[in-house]
Simulated assay, not measured.
Amino acid sequence: MVKKIIIISLAFTLGVTFKAFSQLEQLQNICSLYFPPEFISDGQQYFSPLKPDQSVEFRTTFYGDNVYRIVACTNAKKGDLVFSVYDTEKNLLFTNSAYDNSPYWNFKFKSTVSCIIRLKLESKSFQPGYVMLLIGYQTK
Rank of each mutant, 00 (worst) to 15 (best):
M1I: 07
M1H: 13
V2Y: 15
K4F: 14
K4R: 13
I5P: 00
I5M: 09
I5E: 14
I6E: 15
I7M: 13
I7V: 13
S9P: 00
A11D: 10
A11N: 08
G15L: 10
V16T: 11
F18Y: 15
K19W: 06
F21W: 15
S22I: 14
Q23F: 04
L24C: 06
L24M: 14
L27K: 08
L27A: 04
Q28T: 10
N29M: 13
N29S: 15
N29G: 10
C31G: 13
C31N: 08
S32N: 10
S32T: 02
L33F: 13
Y34P: 01
P36N: 05
E38R: 10
I40Y: 12
S41Q: 02
D42F: 00
D42R: 08
D42I: 10
Q44H: 11
Q45N: 11
Q45P: 03
Y46P: 02
Y46F: 04
Y46V: 11
S48H: 08
S48G: 02
V56I: 14
E57C: 00
F58K: 09
R59Q: 14
R59H: 14
R59D: 09
T60D: 12
T60M: 06
T61P: 05
F62T: 00
F62D: 07
Y63I: 08
Y68F: 03
R69M: 07
R69F: 05
I70M: 00
I70F: 08
V71I: 11
V71H: 06
V71K: 06
V71P: 04
C73V: 03
K77Y: 13
K78P: 04
G79R: 07
V82N: 09
V82S: 06
V82E: 05
F83L: 01
V85D: 11
D87Y: 06
D87W: 05
T88F: 12
T88Y: 06
E89A: 14
L92A: 04
T95Y: 02
N96G: 03
N96R: 11
Y99N: 09
Y99A: 08
N101V: 00
N101P: 00
S102T: 09
S102H: 01
P103N: 07
W105D: 09
N106H: 14
N106K: 12
K108P: 05
S111Q: 15
V113Y: 01
S114F: 06
S114T: 08
C115L: 04
C115H: 03
I116D: 02
R118S: 03
L119W: 01
L119Y: 00
L119S: 00
L121A: 05
E122T: 05
S123F: 09
K124G: 01
S125T: 12
F126I: 07
F126T: 12
F126G: 03
Q127W: 00
Q127M: 07
P128H: 01
V131W: 03
V131T: 03
M132F: 04
L134Y: 09
I135L: 11
G136W: 08
G136N: 01
Y137H: 14
Y137K: 09
Y137C: 02
K140A: 14
K140R: 14
